[in-house]
Design a protein around this nucleic acid. Structure first.
Length: 338
DNA sequence: ACCTGTCAAGTCTGG
DNA sequence: CCAGACTTGACAGGT
């Protein structure tokens, strides 16, 4: 099984390369020339897109092909005060340059809209905001000209004191979205509410692929053992990706399942992400699923971002030297012998 | 140069 | 019913 690794949004290796520079609404509203203020927002967004390209070039240089785009590329993009603003056209060239680079290098990119995107909400205004946020992310993907394999990964949402009821509401509300929107979503198990079992149920019912976060599972396992996860649930998670390939008319195993990996910050703070990702527990997990699929893409969620990825690859090289059944293929991928 | 409080957005808990 | 925690990178305003 080939595993490709990726990192999230920013680089600690590059200097002054934030893809998430912003302007608060407070300072936006203090500017009295609105046209100039909007141009300032577009200029910040332009810098963010430019830095995103720098980060992706840096990733590609290191053979890293998996990358999560920042959700903060365009400041105030979905703010009420900026309704009618069309930053996608204003930044069309920068967006298509990014998309072209992704395609040329065969990279896999995604978004992860923030926790304000909650499709299980009982509040209509929150649902509307969530849909607006999703729409924004989709418009960016479309501005990059990227195909429907490029997704927005979200969580099921809140439980509101009634998890089954909320899961049902999620499914109904998701069902009312347009096909275009549905096809741009993946669902991930979260660290305190919807566990793997429940998220998988939502993913199967709504017909979207599921992203498995092994750290979230470790802190919110719903009583599901590692055996059940790897032998019972993982095959079903795999099926959600195979189904997606079928829907999009792709060749089998051309769209690898996606997992998230991170290590707990400490014994007392198991939920937070540590600076780096420990190689050995991750390798143990990968070995357990290695017989079931030929490829997996693994997003690292570590405080040290790309530095953590580089370090993890060093650790894999050391494990390879000790004959641990792992082969480092290049700077961003390994092969696991089951 | 560095520090601290604040920031568009949601949900949950505890008082 | 409301304040504060949660979580995160970056701004804003201070020294």
């Amino acid at each position: 099984m080939i595993v490709r690794f990726g990192f999230v949004a920013m680089s600690l290796e590059l200097e002054n390369a934030s893809p998430s520079k912003t302007m608060t609404y407070k300072s936006f509203s203090k500017l009295d020339d609105r046209e100039a203020a909007v141009r300032r927002l577009e200029s910040i967004a332009g810098e963010n897109l430019h830095n995103t390209l720098r980060i992706m070039k840096h990733a590609a240089f290191h053979d890293i092909r998996v990358y999560r785009l920042s959700s903060k590329l365009i400041p105030l993009a979905t703010h009420d005060a900026l309704a009618g603003w069309d930053p996608y056209s204003a930044l069309a060239d920068s967006f298509s340059e990014l998309g072209d680079f992704v395609q040329k290098k065969g990279m896999r990119v995604s978004f992860h809209p923030d926790h304000f995107c909650v499709l299980s909400t009982p509040r209509p205004e929150v649902l509307a905001g969530s849909i607006r946020d999703l729409e924004h992310h989709i418009r960016m993907i479309e501005a990059m000209g990227l195909p429907e394999t490029v997704k927005n990964n979200i969580h099921v949402g809140g439980a509101y004191g009634d998890k089954p009821g909320s899961l049902k509401r999620f499914i109904e509300q998701f069902g009312s979205l347009s096909e275009r929107m549905k096809r741009r979503v993946t669902l991930e198990n979260d660290d305190k509410t919807f566990n793997v079992q429940e998220t998988l149920e939502a993913a199967e019912t709504t017909g979207v692929p599921m992203v498995l976060d092994i750290h979230h599972h470790a802190v919110n396992d719903g009583g599901i053992s590692m055996d059940e996860l790897c032998l019972g649930l993982w095959p079903r998670i795999l099926r959600t990706w195979r189904e997606e390939e079928r829907l999009l008319g792709l060749q089998e195993e051309s769209l690898p399942p996606k997992i998230h990996a991170s290590s707990p910050k400490g014994e007392t703070d198991r939920r937070s992400h540590a600076d780096n990702v420990e190689a050995e527990p991750l390798l143990d997990f990968l070995r357990r699923i290695a017989g079931q699929t030929s490829r997996v893409d693994c997003m690292l969620e570590a405080k040290h971002k790309d530095s953590a990825l580089l370090k993890l690859m060093e650790d894999f090289r050391a494990l390879e030297a000790r004959g641990e059944g792992v082969k480092v293929i290049d700077g961003g991928s390994i092969e696991i012998k089951p």
